[in-house]
Amino acid sequence: MNFSPIPTDQVRAWQAGAPDANGQKPERHISDGGGNPCRHCLKMIPKGAPMLILAHRPFPAPQPYAEIGPIFLCADPCEAGGGTDLPAILQSPTYILRGYGADDRIVYGTGAVVATESLAHEAAARLADPRVAYLHLRSARNNCFQLRIDR
Results as ranks from 00 to 15, higher is better:
Ala102Ser: 14
Gly111Thr: 12
Ile30Tyr: 06
Asp76Asn: 15
Gly82Cys: 11
Ser139Arg: 06
Ala55His: 08
Glu79Ile: 09
Val107Ser: 03
Val113Met: 11
Pro64Cys: 05
Thr110His: 06
Arg141Ser: 14
Lys25Glu: 15
Ala133Cys: 11
Arg98Asp: 08
Gly101Trp: 06
Lys47Trp: 06
His40Asn: 14
Met44Thr: 05
Glu117Gln: 13
Glu117Cys: 04
Thr94Cys: 11
Ile53Cys: 12
Leu97Val: 07
Asn22Gln: 14
Ser4Asp: 12
Asp103His: 02
Ala18Cys: 09
Lys25Arg: 15
Gly33Ile: 07
Leu97Ser: 05
Gly23Arg: 11
Asp85Tyr: 00
Gly17Glu: 04
Ser31Ala: 14
Ile6Phe: 02
Asp85Gly: 05
Asp103Met: 04
Pro19Ser: 14
Pro7Asp: 15
Asp85Phe: 00
Ala61Tyr: 14
Arg39Tyr: 05
Leu137Tyr: 02
Pro60Arg: 08
Ile71Met: 05
Lys25Ser: 15
Asp85Ala: 15
Cys144Gly: 04
Gly48His: 08
Gly101Gln: 04
Gly23Val: 09
Glu27Thr: 14
Ile45Met: 02
Ala140Pro: 01
Ala80Phe: 04
Gly33Cys: 06
Leu54Phe: 01
Arg126Ala: 03
Leu42Ile: 10
Pro19Ala: 14
Asp20Val: 05
Leu73Cys: 07
Ala66His: 08
His40Glu: 09
Cys41Asn: 02
Gly48Met: 05
Gly83Ser: 08
Phe145Lys: 00
Pro93Tyr: 02
Ile6Ala: 10
Leu86Phe: 10
Thr110Trp: 11
Glu79Gln: 14
Leu86Pro: 05
Gln146Ser: 12
Val107Gln: 03
Gly48Gln: 09
Phe72Asn: 02
Pro5Ala: 04
Ala120Thr: 11
Tyr65Arg: 03
Ala66Ile: 12
Gly34Cys: 14
Pro58Phe: 01
Leu137Thr: 03
